[in-house]
Simulated assay, not measured.
Amino acid sequence: MNAVLDHTSLRALEAVMFKCRPSLETVVDGDWVWRFAKGYTGRANSLQSLNVKDTDKAQERLAVHVQRSRDYGIVPKFRVTPLAGQKIVDLLDVQGWSTQGHTRVLVRTGPDSSRFTPGPENIVVVAPGSNQWRQAMDGLIGLDPTTFGIYLEMLTKLPPTARGFLMYQADGALACAALGVVADEIAAIFSLTTVPQYQRQGFGRGLMGFIHGYLRNEGAKQVVLQVEAHNKPAIGLYRSLGYEEAYSYTYRTLEAAE
C-alpha cells in the first residue's frame, strides 16, 4: 500500500529532510535548491525543485546551476521528485541528462508506543558529534579518510534534536546503528546499518522499535526514511513496521562533453 500525499505534504517532507540531512552549502533560487557537500551523498550534492509550477526560465537557471556545480568540482546532478515540473523533466531529456538510481521515500504515521526491553543487546543513545558515535561509524560505514572527514563535518550541521542510536551485543560488540532527527513534528531516520555478521537476526527490527518509541516521546507524529528501490529486504522490513511509500525519486546527471 502507498501513502497518498499532495504536493504540499511532499514539500513539507522534503523541507524536513533538508533540516535532518543538511548539506555544507545551500543556494536557493526561487523554489529551486542547490546543495553542496564536497561530493558526499547525492542528496547533499544536487539541485532540485520544490514547486511543480516553478519552471520559469528553466533553461537559463539550469545552466547557472550546472556551471556552479562544475566550479565546485562535482558532476551536475538534478534530483527528480514529483515536485519537479514536467517542463524541467523534458528539458533534462533534451539536454541528455542520464538517469541514475531509484530511491523510495517511506512514511509511517504515529510512531508506536513500544519500548525496548533490555536483554542480551544494549541500546545507547548518543549525540552524533560524540566520540562514541564517530568511533562506531568509522568502523561501520566504510568510508575512506577524506570522505569520512566530510561525513563528520556534515554531522556538525545537524539540528540539536539529532541522536545516534547504537545497539551493542552483550560482549560489547556493535550490532547496528541509525540516526534519528525530529523537526516540525516529523522524524527522519537515516543510515540504519547492521554489521554484516549480525544481519537477518532481528537487530535492525529491534533497534527500529526502540527508535519509534524514542521519537514519539520527542514529539514526532510521523516518521520518514528513504531506501534504495533495489533493497528488497529493507523495504520488506520497513513495510512490516507500518511504513508506506510516499513517493520516489531518481537522479539525472550531466557529464561534461568530450
Rank of each mutant, 00 (worst) to 15 (best):
A177Y: 07
I186E: 00
Q197T: 14
Y168H: 14
D171P: 05
A188Y: 13
T193Y: 03
V182H: 03
A170G: 10
G172Y: 11
Q169I: 03
I186A: 01
D171K: 06
I186V: 15
L174H: 10
L166E: 02
M167G: 02
I186R: 04
A170T: 12
L166Y: 06
D184R: 08
Y168N: 11
A183Q: 12
A177F: 08
I186F: 04
C176Q: 06
E185T: 09
D184L: 02
F190G: 05
L179W: 00
L166M: 04
G172I: 12
A175R: 14
Q197Y: 07
I189L: 12
G172A: 11
T194R: 07
A170S: 14
Y168V: 09
I189N: 00
F165M: 06
G172S: 11
C176S: 09
V195I: 15
A170M: 07
L174C: 10
I186C: 06
D184S: 10
A188I: 11
C176N: 11
A183G: 01
Q169K: 13
L192P: 10
A177H: 10
D184H: 06
G180K: 06
A188W: 10
F190C: 02
P196G: 01
S191P: 00
S191M: 11
S191K: 05
A183W: 12
Q169T: 13
E185P: 00
A175L: 05
V195Y: 09
A188N: 12
Q169C: 12
T193N: 06
A183R: 08
V182E: 04
A178L: 10
I189C: 07
G180M: 04
T193A: 12
A178K: 01
T194G: 08
A170N: 12
M167E: 09
A170K: 13
A187R: 00
F165S: 10
I189H: 00
G172H: 11
M167Y: 03
A173E: 15
A178N: 02
C176P: 08
F190D: 14
Y168L: 14
F190T: 06
A175I: 09
I189S: 00
Q169G: 14
I189P: 00
Q197W: 04
G180F: 04
A187F: 00
S191V: 06
V181K: 01
F190M: 04
V182C: 08
A188Q: 13
D171C: 04
T194D: 07
Q197S: 12
V181R: 03
A177T: 14
L192N: 04
Q197L: 04
T194W: 06
D171E: 12
V182R: 01
V195W: 07
V182Q: 02
